[in-house]
Measured scan of single mutants.
Amino acid sequence: HSHMSHTQVIELERKFSHQKYLSAPERAHLAKNLKLTETQVKIWFQNRRYKTKRKQLSSEL
């Protein structure tokens, strides 16, 4: 499990705020920019979407 830097997370968050789903080319581009693997980016987005979904569910209770 590799640790992401604060800067990388900020960039991922910024991208996520604009779009929740990335196409393969977008993911490849973002990964390259942030010096991450595409898998890391993919998993981060999956986890981030899951967290957002959970938060929405709990706020509706």
Rank of each mutant, 00 (worst) to 15 (best):
S58H: 07
K55M: 12
H29I: 14
L22W: 03
S2K: 12
K20L: 03
L22G: 00
E26W: 01
E26K: 04
L12H: 01
Q19S: 12
S59K: 13
K51Q: 14
F16C: 07
S59F: 06
R14Q: 05
H1P: 09
A28N: 05
R49M: 04
T7H: 12
R54W: 06
H1I: 08
A28L: 09
E11A: 14
E13F: 07
H29N: 11
K53P: 09
V41K: 01
H1R: 09
Q46C: 12
E26H: 03
E11K: 06
T52L: 14
A24C: 07
T37V: 02
R49W: 04
A28F: 06
F16E: 02
Y21K: 04
S5M: 04
R48Y: 03
K15G: 02
T52G: 10
K42Q: 09
S59N: 14
S2F: 14
I43H: 09
E11T: 06
H29L: 14
T52F: 14
Q56E: 12
R48T: 04
I10M: 13
T39V: 11
T7A: 15
E13N: 05
K32D: 05
E38L: 06
N47T: 09
S2A: 11
S2E: 08
W44I: 02
F45M: 02
N33Q: 15
K51T: 08
K32T: 06
H3C: 15
Q40L: 06
H3G: 08
E60Q: 12
S5N: 07
H3S: 08
Y50L: 14
K35G: 15
L36H: 02
H6G: 05
S59V: 11
Q46S: 06
K53I: 10
V9T: 09
A28T: 06
Y21D: 03
L30P: 01
E26M: 05
E13H: 04
Y21H: 06
A24Q: 12
E60P: 06
K15C: 15
K55W: 06
K55T: 12
Q56W: 11
R49I: 05
K42S: 06
E26I: 04
T7L: 13
E13R: 06
L57T: 09
Q46W: 09
Y21A: 03
N33K: 12
S23F: 03
E38N: 06
K51Y: 11
S23Y: 06
Y21L: 03
S58N: 13
K53T: 07
H3E: 10
K42E: 15
M4K: 02
S2Q: 12
N47M: 15
P25C: 15
S59T: 12
F45V: 01
T39E: 14
R27E: 04
S58K: 11
L36G: 00
E11M: 09
N47V: 09
R54E: 10
A31V: 01
H1E: 09
L30E: 01
Y50Q: 13
P25L: 14
V41R: 01
I10Q: 12
E11L: 08
L61R: 07
L34R: 00
E11V: 07
S2P: 11
K32L: 13
A24Y: 13
S23T: 11
E60S: 09
L30W: 00
L34C: 04
H18M: 12
F16R: 03
E26G: 02
